[in-house]
Nucleic acid binder design. Structure first.
Length: 296
DNA sequence: TCATTAACCGTCG
DNA sequence: CGACGGTTAATGA
């Protein structure tokens, strides 16, 4: 539990252990398919499940089912238990991880133990597209918030995609632009807004990505600790609690068992200054991360 | 372990 | 000065 909070020390050990696993899954997926009778049945089933995940991934949007099936044959599932690192900041990147199920926390670690969460990711999300494409090191750490299953797309398969399916190049560019916009907005929010505003943005963004309507408002569909909210907003846990308690007292939101429900979106937008905000938050509403668009 | 509250303190407009 | 937010400590679930 404490391990993933440590920045550098045991990150190296985790990283090399991970490279092992990644290597195995890559080679296994590409070169050594199962041969036994039972294995073939299992293989067909796994391929089906891979296809259903991959065809939802924005990178492969618009491809023929046949094409996705061919690509799926080159990929492989890899489960990660809750709290496990999928990859670590600074580690070499040799492929792309696509989230099939579960939630992942993408973040930077500071030497003093504090963390800056770049984003929380859900199904169909491609993790760290940049490093996957340029083959350089990861710029953030990805940790499973809960038990997760990911699809690993080896680097060789990625270049195969670019060569054989021009559509995926277009998709890739669009995805990168989207990420760029989000990072840009995030840095602006972090430097220009106060604690209330940053926490407000965090909540609104999460509601866009993962919110679903309830009789009373919008519920963010998974558990988040106060620390998670704090790390995403760039404040201490006490400040996050202070602000959230205040919002609860005002009846703007409700939280039960680490699940937040926004009861009054308007009043959350107000202190966040969404009205005059220059930043085009509509990017958060796009289906790119598998979220429900235009909820707010 | 997580959430909450309160007292205290430094910074800054 | 006063609002804001980080630090610390105590407490409860």
């Amino acid at each position: 539990m404490v391990t993933w909070q440590r920045p550098s020390g045991l990150a190296a050990a985790t990283a090399s252990a991970l490279r092992e696993r990644v290597g195995m899954s890559a080679r296994g997926g590409v070169a050594a398919p199962e041969r036994s009778a039972d294995g073939e049945g299992y293989q067909r089933d796994e391929n089906k499940r891979l296809v259903s995940v991959l065809e939802r991934c924005p990178l492969l949007a618009g491809l023929e089912r046949r094409e996705v099936e061919d690509i799926a044959a080159l990929c492989r599932f890899q489960p990660f238990p809750a709290q496990a690192d999928i990859f670590v900041e600074g580690q070499a990147c040799d492929g792309l991880w696509v989230l099939a199920s579960g939630r992942v926390r993408l973040y930077h670690s500071a030497a003093d133990g504090r963390q800056h969460v770049v984003s929380f990711r859900g199904e169909s999300s491609a993790l760290e597209l940049g490093p996957a494409l340029d083959g350089r090191t990861y710029t953030a750490t990805a940790t499973a918030l809960e038990d997760c299953v990911l699809v690993y797309v080896p680097k060789a398969v990625l270049s195969h995609l670019a060569r054989n399916y021009p559509l995926t190049v277009r998709n890739t560019i669009e995805q990168l632009c989207l990420e760029l916009r989000q990072r840009d907005i995030a840095t602006a929010v972090a430097t220009l807004k106060d604690a209330r505003g940053r926490i407000g943005c965090t909540l609104l963004q999460l509601a866009r990505q993962y919110g679903h309507r309830t009789p009373g408002g919008v519920r963010i569909g998974f558990r988040l600790t106060r620390q998670d909210i704090a790390d995403r907003s760039g404040v201490t846990i006490e400040t996050a609690i202070r602000v959230l308690s205040d919002l609860q007292r005002q009846g703007v939101l409700r939280t039960q068992a680490q699940v937040i429900e926004i009861l009054d979106v308007r009043r959350l937008q107000h202190p966040t200054n969404c009205g005059e905000c220059q930043f085009d938050c509509s990017v958060f509403g796009q289906a790119a991360f598998g979220g429900t668009a235009n909820l707010l």
